[in-house]
């Protein structure tokens, strides 16, 4: 049975100023992916198998293969941000969560360098404190005295 990679339902995500920003729900833990991480994230729209994700990612950077991407995918899965499924899913979210890979291709393709950063800094977990957002998304500036 083929297994397709998709973003988990318990995530919120958006590409903000060129970075894929992901929140794991309900904890609100925040992950920010760098450009190459965002490219890989964009491919997780539920229409690709693991092999296809890795092949498309490598192709986007003109590589034959990319073990770092494989590790990164495993890290995303381990973090609960990616779910394996049999059905295709997630297409509607995909278009807003991260740009198509082509948009990220740097003018001079310094592929190795880009990809080598993947395992190290692509995924950075932060214990987000979204409670503080009430200052701007509750009733305006909600004074937090506590």
């Amino acid at each position: 049975m083929k297994q397709y990679y998709a973003r988990s339902a318990n995530t919120a995500c958006r590409e903000v100023l060129g970075e894929a920003v992901i929140l794991r729900l309900p904890e609100g833990e925040m992950f920010v992916l760098n450009a190459s991480g965002s490219v890989l994230w964009a491919l997780l729209d539920g229409t690709r198998t693991c092999a296809q994700v890795l092949a498309d990612f490598s192709a986007a950077y003109g590589l034959n293969n990319c073990p770092e991407a494989e590790n990164f995918l495993a890290a995303l899965t381990e973090a609960g941000l990616v779910a394996l499924g049999e059905a295709k899913a997630g297409r509607d979210v995909a278009q807003y969560c991260s740009s198509a890979p082509a948009a990220y291709l740097p003018p001079e393709i310094r592929t190795r360098e880009l990809v080598e950063t993947l395992a190290g800094i692509c995924i950075s977990g932060y214990t987000g404190e979204p409670d503080q957002m009430c200052q701007t998304i509750g009733v305006g500036c909600f004074d937090a005295y506590d």
Binding site: V16, M30, V32, S124, Y126, G128, E129, D131, Q132, T136
Partner: peptide
């Protein structure tokens, strides 16, 4: 109440 994480603060400012 905890402080906002540096990352979310950075994102908000940006």
């Amino acid at each position: 109440m905890r402080e906002a994480s540096p990352e979310i603060s950075r994102l908000r400012s940006a």
